Simulated scan of single mutants.
Amino acid sequence: MASLTPPVSIRHGVRCVTANGVNVEEVLLAVGQEIGYENISSASRMNKAVVVFLKEENHVNHLISSGIVVSGDFVTVLPLVAPTIKVTVSNVPPFIQSNEIERELLRYAQADEAVGPVKDPENVQSVEEEEDEPQGAEEAIVVLYPDDSSPEAVEFRRKVKSLLHLAARTLAHLDIPFWLSSGTCLGWFRQCSIISYSRDVDIGIFIVDFRSDIVAAFRDAGLSLKHKFGKVEDSLELSFLSDDVKLDVFFFYEDGDVVWNGGTQAKSGRKFKYVFPRFSLCWAELLELKVRVPCETLDYVKANYGASWSVPVRSWDWKTSPSNVQENGVWPLAEWVELIQVY
C-alpha cells in the first residue's frame, strides 16, 4: 500500500514580518533560496505579514533560526504556533448568558475568542486543554486553494501584478472604470489570488465608457495590441500583450435585466455572448491594488462558472465551458477585415 503524505498543519507554517511594499512573491523567492522551492507548500498574505506553509516541520525551525533576506533587508521569521489553552465550559444553566461567562473568564486571562454555545455537550469534558490551536479560518483557505509556489508561478504572479497595476493607471488616466472579470474575478473571489494556470488577466468595462483612444493609450503604456474583435455597437473585445501575459478587455452591453459581453472565434467568424445578471460595482483589493469587482460576486461567478465554481478546473474551452455562453451568429465574411483583426 502506498504511503500517504501527512497533511499540512499549523505547525508547518511560518510568519514573515516584512516591510511595507514587500509582496508575497518576493518572500517566496527568499524562502525558496533558503530551504529550496520544492519544500514550499503554499503561501498567502495575512494582515501585514506573509504566511508560508512548508512541507516539513524541520524547515520551520531552520527558517526561524536563519531568517530570510528580501531585497537586501533581513526579515524575521516567526512560528505560527503559539501555546494556547482552550477552555470549554459545559453544563451551564440556560439563564446564564455567554457574555457573563466571558466577563468572568477575562478576569483571569485574555480570551482569544468570544464564548459561544457548545454544539455537542455530551461529548465534551468539563474542561479540556488543547495546545497549538489554529487561529481562525484563514488556514483552511490556504489549504483548500494553495498558491503554486514554483518559480514559474511566482514569476507569473509578479508579471500579472505589474500588468494589472499598469492597466489600472492607464484606465484611470482615461477616466474609464473597470472591474475584475472572468478568471481573474474567480481567482480573487475563490482564493484571494491569481489562478496561476489561467495565463492571462481579464477585466470588464461597460461599453458606455468606451473611448476611441484606449488602444493608443495602452500602446503608449508599452502594451502591444494582440487582437481586436467586434465593434463598438456589438461584441467589442480587445486583447493586449505585456511580457508574455495577455490582458483581455471585455466590453459589456446592457440589455434589459441582464448584461452581456461578446466573444469571437477568429478562424470561423462565429460569435458568442456571455450573459450575466445585472450587478453593481464595489471596491476590493488584489495584488496590493485597489480594484472594482461586482458587488454581487457570487451571482456573477456562478453565472460564468456554474454551481461548481469552487472546484478548480484546468481544462477550459471558452466556447463551450462557461455556463452562460450562447451562440450569437456569425460575422459577415465581407466585414471580417474590419471586425476580426489579429496582430
Score class of each variant (00 low, 15 high):
22 V>Q: 00
137 A>Y: 14
38 E>I: 08
158 R>V: 04
109 A>C: 12
314 R>P: 11
138 E>S: 13
257 D>E: 13
88 T>P: 14
81 V>M: 06
343 Y>S: 03
335 E>L: 05
184 T>K: 03
43 A>Q: 01
194 I>K: 00
108 Y>W: 15
323 S>W: 12
65 S>M: 07
244 D>C: 08
197 Y>S: 10
286 L>S: 02
241 L>E: 04
241 L>K: 05
169 R>P: 12
104 E>V: 13
206 F>G: 08
207 I>K: 04
189 F>Q: 12
263 G>H: 03
32 G>Y: 01
253 Y>M: 00
1 M>A: 13
278 R>D: 10
275 V>L: 11
168 A>E: 12
93 P>K: 08
187 G>R: 03
314 R>Q: 14
28 L>P: 00
204 G>L: 02
153 A>R: 04
41 S>M: 13
255 D>E: 09
183 G>L: 03
70 V>P: 03
320 T>K: 07
136 G>R: 07
334 A>F: 07
206 F>Y: 06
171 L>D: 01
165 H>D: 09
338 E>D: 09
221 A>V: 01
159 K>I: 06
73 D>S: 12
163 L>E: 01
113 E>Y: 12
251 F>A: 02
233 E>I: 01
42 S>C: 11
81 V>R: 06
118 V>M: 08
100 E>F: 08
52 V>I: 04
89 V>I: 12
77 V>F: 00
260 W>F: 13
131 E>D: 15
289 L>V: 09
27 V>W: 02
92 V>K: 06
1 M>C: 12
75 V>G: 00
226 K>A: 09
233 E>Y: 01
99 N>V: 10
278 R>G: 13
129 E>P: 13
209 D>K: 05
240 F>P: 00
119 K>Q: 10
43 A>I: 01
224 S>N: 07
286 L>E: 01
163 L>N: 02
283 W>T: 15
274 Y>Q: 07
3 S>Q: 15
304 N>F: 14
236 L>C: 03
179 W>P: 05
331 W>E: 05
6 P>S: 10
80 L>R: 02
227 H>Y: 10
119 K>A: 13
168 A>V: 14
194 I>H: 00
302 K>N: 15
321 S>A: 05
150 S>F: 05
105 L>W: 01
94 P>W: 07
173 H>K: 12
130 E>H: 12
91 N>T: 08
335 E>D: 05
212 S>H: 09
319 K>Y: 14
341 Q>V: 09
318 W>V: 09
109 A>I: 11
17 V>A: 10
217 A>M: 01
180 L>D: 06
99 N>T: 10
79 P>V: 02
305 Y>R: 11
168 A>C: 10
1 M>H: 14
91 N>R: 14
108 Y>S: 11
220 D>C: 14
1 M>P: 09
307 A>M: 12
142 V>M: 15
4 L>I: 15
88 T>K: 08
22 V>R: 00
260 W>Q: 05
252 F>Q: 02
38 E>G: 10
1 M>E: 10
99 N>G: 08
74 F>S: 09
303 A>E: 05
317 D>L: 06
75 V>Y: 00
163 L>P: 02
168 A>T: 15
52 V>R: 03
238 L>D: 03
235 S>N: 09
329 G>L: 04
285 E>I: 04
145 Y>C: 04
155 E>P: 04
334 A>K: 11
179 W>S: 04
201 V>P: 00
121 P>G: 08
257 D>Q: 12
